[in-house]
Amino acid sequence: MGSTRRAFTEEYKDQAVAFVLDGDRPIAEVARNIGVHEMTLGKWVKKAREAAAERPADAVLNESERTELDRLRREAADATATIAELRMQVDFAKKVATWFAKGKQ
């Protein structure tokens, strides 16, 4: 049986790339955390870096755009922390359920 390719939205890719570029985190670490293959994320980051290099130098954000960008980055970081916490809770719940299931047999 053949495997099915996963499809990712541009928004998802942009956020994953931002974790690497803005957070100064290694591609391998981010890829592990978001469940994407390291090579896939690496290609997204490479593409984003090439696109940034092609942009004109005068494409600087104004004050309101910078404020909005900072706010969105904080929201993304908060959402990521919440997701990580929820994943830990799910993993714990799975272990507890397994433990109870083994005890009932």
Score class of each variant (00 low, 15 high):
T98C: 13
E63T: 10
V20R: 02
K95I: 15
E68H: 00
R66Y: 08
R71G: 06
L72W: 01
E65T: 02
M1W: 08
E85P: 01
K46W: 12
R74L: 11
M88S: 14
I27W: 00
Q105L: 10
V45T: 03
P26R: 05
A79Q: 12
P26F: 00
A59M: 14
E29R: 08
A79D: 15
V36R: 01
D14H: 07
T40S: 05
D91G: 03
S3R: 15
V36H: 04
A28M: 06
R87A: 08
R49H: 04
V36G: 05
G35W: 00
V20C: 04
E38H: 11
E29S: 13
F92H: 12
T67Y: 10
D14N: 12
D14Y: 02
S64Q: 12
V30K: 02
K13M: 07
A79P: 07
E38Y: 02
A31Q: 03
E10C: 10
T80S: 15
K104F: 06
V20T: 02
F100R: 14
R6M: 12
K94E: 07
A18N: 07
A81V: 09
E68S: 05
I27S: 04
V17K: 02
L21G: 00
G23C: 01
K43R: 13
A93T: 08
L21E: 01
A7Y: 10
I27F: 00
S3V: 13
M88G: 12
P26E: 05
R6V: 11
A84G: 03
F100P: 10
K13P: 03
L69D: 07
L41I: 03
T82L: 14
A77D: 12
V20W: 03
Y12V: 12
R49Y: 05
L86Y: 07
V96P: 01
L21R: 06
E11R: 10
D91K: 10
G42E: 01
D91A: 09
N62Q: 09
L21W: 00
G23A: 03
R87S: 07
A52S: 00
G42I: 00
E11H: 08
E63M: 09
T40Q: 07
M88L: 13
E10A: 13
E63K: 06
R74H: 08
L41Y: 00
T4Q: 13
E50A: 10
F92L: 15
G23D: 03
R87K: 11
G2I: 12
M1Y: 04
M39H: 12
V96C: 06
